[in-house]
Design a protein around this nucleic acid. Structure first.
Lengths: 242, 242
DNA sequence: GTCACGATATGTCGTCTGACATACGCGCAA
DNA sequence: TTGCGCGTATGTCAGACGACATATCGTGAC
């Protein structure tokens, strides 16, 4: 890990969420610095109370829980703009771990400053709650996917949601986006075995719907994929940025 | 549905969260009234933007999502003290529906007042975020349960968590608590078929661990159940009340 | 009383998914 | 070059879970 500030991609993000000058000044004080980590680096650990919170500026990661016997559940995938450490920030304990999947650049905040945010910037505090509620909503959908959908439906649904997120973030070019995760990560996200996930992916590939190779996801048949996934292929609304 | 105020169980709840006089005055203005509904009454509908939010004063309910083809995923069970409608309150849209399982008494709030809460009562706004983060944490655990645990483990885990919640709320007497849900609700919560849920429950009953009959859950072997569930059988921390 | 309906219970059989084995390609180190 | 580890791919077999059928019990309508 090394703190650095060059080549900062923050400008990109400011396109999405324009700050007022006062807000910018406050957030600047809120911000401790920037952090760049390598791929496969643990950022936050389940059960810990991290003193620092992050906003992802670049790179991707994985949120996951580990059961006592080693089984792993991927709770969500982390993308630029995501806020990391909210649970530690308000509850004093993370419910899951977070690890980078690629090199990541993070905006670092001080946990103790959350209070001042609630006191002096209620609109930003509201955004924080919005993020938490949004995450809760997504987890509810994931629950429905894992609980109710078949393996084929679940994989199609997940790839579609990932691509929708990519589109909302401008990570896509034509019908492709970077997806630097392993099949094992997807399997752990869906509660499927690695082998069955692989075979299910092969089925979607055979049907000419998706192509996921070398860390790049390609959507070849949007409508077909939507039919299998059971949700319309529309883009997502933008999220507030903390 | 009928609004009434007699026989109000609010006193009970105030034991857990003492308000300052100013807070009490504010919350009193925040509160519109009380609502009592029969069992099996829809309270909030997925996708809707309810003008009113609730805190559960008495009774139990179910949060659930419905897929296009009718499949149902129970997201969580609702107990006294739970806040209902947060997603509609901050995002303008519910991600799941909520239906009462028993007769329920609810404290009614105005959705529009959430803003004033953030502006003038940052500590209460913080509690709101705490609740959202807490719910997110629980959903993460549920994901891990549905995704990773076997049917037997999952049922044991759920019954244990339900009993822990009951203990934290003072709903338990000795080793029993009211659990007015159907086996179908549990099945939909775990992504299992009704039949398999029934057989799994029978297995736990045969082992002398639990007894769930006539809306009453009895824990006969706490340590045995904990072993199967894979989590220690300790009580939960109290939650803030909105 | 009796009929219908919902919830729970239990058996049989089929299938979706997991476990295990094996193979291929690639990057990396000796 | 050779060997090793990691991720991906594919086949066979086994098991957990779902689908269907059926039965019991209690409640409510008539």
């Amino acid at each position: 890990m090394a703190v650095k500030c060059d080549n900062c991609p923050l400008r990109e993000l400011e396109i999405f969420v324009p700050f007022t000058t006062e807000e910018a000044r406050f957030m600047k004080g809120f911000k401790i610095g920037e952090l760049t980590v390598d791929a496969q680096t643990p950022l936050l650990i389940e059960g810990s109370n991290a003193p620092q919170l992050y906003t992802v500026l670049a790179g991707q990661g994985v949120r996951f829980k580990t059961l006592e016997d080693g089984r792993r559940q991927v709770v969500n995938f982390v993308f630029p703009g995501d806020f990391i450490g909210l649970q530690a920030g308000v509850m004093g304990e993370m419910g899951h771990s977070i690890t980078s999947a690629t090199e990541m650049t993070l905006c670092v905040f001080d946990r103790a400053e959350i209070w001042s945010l609630f006191k002096s910037h209620p609109d930003r505090a509201f955004d924080l709650t919005w993020l938490a509620a949004s995450e809760e909503m997504f987890l509810g959908e994931s629950l429905a996917t894992i609980g109710q959908r078949s393996a084929l439906e679940a994989v199609a649904w997940t790839l579609q949601r990932l691509f929708q997120r990519g589109e909302a973030l401008g990570l896509t070019t034509a019908n492709e986006m970077p997806l630097p995760f392993r099949q094992q990560d997807l399997a752990d996200a869906l509660g499927l075995s690695l082998v069955h996930t692989n075979k299910t992916l092969a089925k979607l590939k055979d049907r000419g719907m998706v192509l996921w190779q070398d860390g790049v996801l390609g959507i070849l048949d949007r409508t077909g994929l939507s039919d299998v996934a059971g949700i319309p292929m529309e883009a997502l609304r933008p999220r507030p940025l903390i």
